[in-house]
Nucleic acid binder design. Structure first.
Length: 626
RNA sequence: GCUUAUGUAGCUCAGGGGUAGAGCACAUCCUUGGUAAGGAUGAGGUCGCGGGUUCAAUUCCCGCCAUAAGCUCCA
């Protein structure tokens, strides 16, 4: 992701906003401080990024957060010196000489070259201006622009230190990346820090535990989420919602197993090509026993599985191959098309351990998946239908803050299956669809699936990371690999086109982001507990119980707090649980045969009869109101 | 997978070479109170797991597991 950000800053370098310019300058202030403290520091790049800036540095000393105080103190001196940022245009030879004497990104000449600056220098195309920015004794190779003086960087803070590969390439050395942020003044900096604190309170991992929605167990395994009863309710409501939509749009629900033979994935292209991102295959029992009898080693087993000499099974990484087999199980006429097969299909992927986190990146997840098999002529309409569904689903939940990404293949890479012609057809179809939908889409080469391009709906989590949710993908390739066909009006076999689509993407990731979107305050239809009845004292528990029964009878998820706590405490607990409605019940209400209604956000809603309350909340739930 | 942190009660965290503490939650009892915390008592821990150093390890060292941020990756 930072790589993308880097690319963006390069592209936008000359159109840098004032804030970005300030942060870029602050990165130089940071580098100045580090160079003074550790003269052996070798700097790479130090751009502004969303929310702040960083500088990559190679240094014998391992910078830890304990060093921040010291670095910030040195930065303070640099700021106080209030040196002017001076731009000096130099020739390539001059710049080379400085880099070779170690004078670039440093406060003095050194015995060693400025290695990364030298490398970056070599990448600047012939004819392009080469500039050095100087602030006091610190000289850096930099295209700018900068603020006037170091004194402009008044409000900054170092945030974290991490490692990053030089130029984002795994084969390059790892550098220490120091992140910081900077604002025009202290007030804005503090506001920013407060916003970060606020955002943390909405973190789905924190809320998921507090609200009892899901958990992980070290014994079950990393990245394998366990949905608890309350999370189960949210999930079921989401599934019911999708199912209703599918029923009205001509989909058929299917059910398929969680595993399939390796041969299936050989045909689809998942095995052995994507072997390392899957759970290891299971060999058949006879094969295991046979090999064991022979005293064979693991290498032979693995090799046999790869070549197909030994048959085995794999946990499914996707649902498409199974759905394809359902399509292929019948003789299809063009009159049968489109065939729309839907399934809440659980898939398993071996994500690297460092990438797992909360519900947003897991090793086992359930897609609200569907595959549409259609004629080439139907593709455009079907894509529109899918996009409409995604928009409706996101709209119902009030998740309007997404970006649409057109994920295309990377022309340089060879990881894709299928012919270039098919890819072009598919990419054109999606471009057309996006245009027709009338939304701004960002084209991202290299983000495509291995079998086809996609339209992805991307949202941000509380700490600003992008996550792909809904997706619509056109695929001319898998139908070919599986030799799918239908009979056309010309009585000849034709190749269908496949569309893969998932409005939520995965229920896990979607729920995670939904928790953050609502800060745990689910709309009533999704809330695990919709109403809590709070008798003023235990002598009204009986009346409370009657209300509970009436609500439950009407299909409302309701519970009574019949403890000996005072109402104040009961309200507090109900609000901490984000229960939408609280019904307070005391002598007054019982006497007048009514309930006093309180909403978690809208506070006191006055009194109404229980019947009115029931019919109001039923309507709110059935409409899936926000 | 890599870098850097972190891991003590259900949760949030304090502590520290001599086998542990707070608040909340929980249990029991008292209280029956009108819109975000009534009171008392009590129970609860192999200090992530496994090795090592030591008379003694939860504390120091090593390995592993898990979590977090970032990088890389995400069919």
């Amino acid at each position: 992701m930072a790589e993308k950000t880097d690319r963006k800053t390069l592209e936008e370098r000359h159109g840098m906003s004032d804030l970005e310019r300030l942060r870029h300058s602050c990165a130089h202030v940071l580098a100045t401080a580090i160079a003074r403290i550790w003269p052996d520091a070798q700097f790479a790049a130090g751009p502004p990024v969303e929310g702040g800036f960083y500088y990559d540095v190679d240094l014998k000393h391992r910078i830890s957060t304990e060093d921040f105080e010291r670095i910030e103190a040195e930065m303070k001196k640099v700021v106080k010196e209030n040196a002017t940022f001076v731009k000096v245009v130099v020739t390539r030879e001059e710049a080379m000489a400085m880099a070779k004497s170690g004078r670039l990104a440093s406060v003095a000449e050194r015995k060693v070259e400025s290695v990364f600056k030298l490398d970056l220098l070599n990448e600047i195309p012939e004819g392009e201006e080469i500039s050095i920015y100087q602030n006091g004794d610190f000289w850096d190779l930099c295209a700018g622009p900068h603020v006037g003086r170091t004194g402009n960087c008044k409000a900054y803070k170092l945030m974290s230190v991490a490692s990053a590969f030089y130029k984002g390439d795994k084969s390059n050395p790892q550098l220490q990346r120091v992140y910081g942020t900077c604002f025009p003044n202290k007030t804005q900096l503090n506001e920013h820090l407060e916003r970060l604190e606020e955002a943390k309170k909405r973190d789905h991992r924190k809320l998921g535990r507090e609200l009892g929605l899901f958990t992980f167990s070290e014994v079950v395994g990393q990245g394998l989420p366990l949905w608890k009863p309350k999370g189960g309710i949210v999930r079921r409501e989401l599934q019911d919602f999708i199912t209703e939509e599918l029923d009205s749009q001509g989909y058929y629900q299917v059910f398929t197993p969680h595993i399939g033979k390796l041969d299936l994935y050989r045909t689809s292209g998942h095995f052995p090509y994507y072997e390392e991102s899957q759970f290891p295959p299971m060999a058949e029992r006879d094969a295991w026993e046979g090999l064991a009898d022979e005293g064979a080693d693991c290498g032979r087993l693995l090799n046999g599985l790869r070549t197909g000499a030994i048959e085995g099974f794999m946990l499914k990484p996707m649902n498409c191959p199974h759905h394809i087999q359902i399509f292929a199980s019948d003789h299809r006429s063009y009159r049968d098309l489109p065939v729309r097969l839907a399934e809440f299909g659980t898939v398993y992927r071996w994500e690297q351990s460092g990438e797992l986190g909360g519900l947003t990146r897991v090793r086992s997840f359930t897609q609200d998946d569907a595959h549409l098999f259609c004629t080439p002529e139907q593709v455009a309409d079907e894509i529109q239908g899918c996009l409409g569904l995604v928009k409706k689903v996101l709209g119902t939940l009030g998740m309007e803050d997404y970006t649409v990404r057109l994920s295309l293949r990377d022309l340089e890479s060879d990881k894709y299956v299928g012919s270039p012609e098919n890819w072009e057809k598919a990419e054109d179809a999606l471009r057309e669809a996006v245009k027709k939908m009338g939304v701004d889409a960002i084209e991202e080469p290299g983000e495509a699936a291995f079998y086809g391009p996609k339209i992805d709906f991307v949202v941000k989590d509380v700490i600003g990371r992008d996550w792909q949710l809904g997706t619509v993908q056109v695929d001319y390739n898998l139908p070919e690999r599986f030799d799918l066909s239908y009979v056309g009006s010309d009585n000849k076999p034709h190749r269908p086109v496949m569309i893969h689509r998932a409005p939520f993407g995965s229920l896990e990731r979607f729920t995670g982001l939904l928790i953050e979107h609502f800060a745990g305050k689910f709309p009533t239809w999704l809330a695990p507990e919709q109403v809590r009845v709070l008798p003023i004292s235990q002598q009204f528990n009986e009346a409370g119980q009657k209300a509970v029964e009436a609500l439950a009878e009407a299909g409302v998820r309701v519970r009574m707090d019949g403890t000996g706590d005072k109402v104040g405490a009961k309200i507090r607990l109900a609000r901490l649980d984000r229960v939408p409605y609280m019904l307070v019940l005391g002598a007054r209400e019982v006497e007048n045969n009514e309930v006093s209604v309180r909403h978690r956000d809208r506070e006191d809603l006055g009194t109404q009869s229980l019947d009115d309350f029931v019919s109001n909340i039923r309507e709110e739930i059935s409409k899936r109101s926000l």
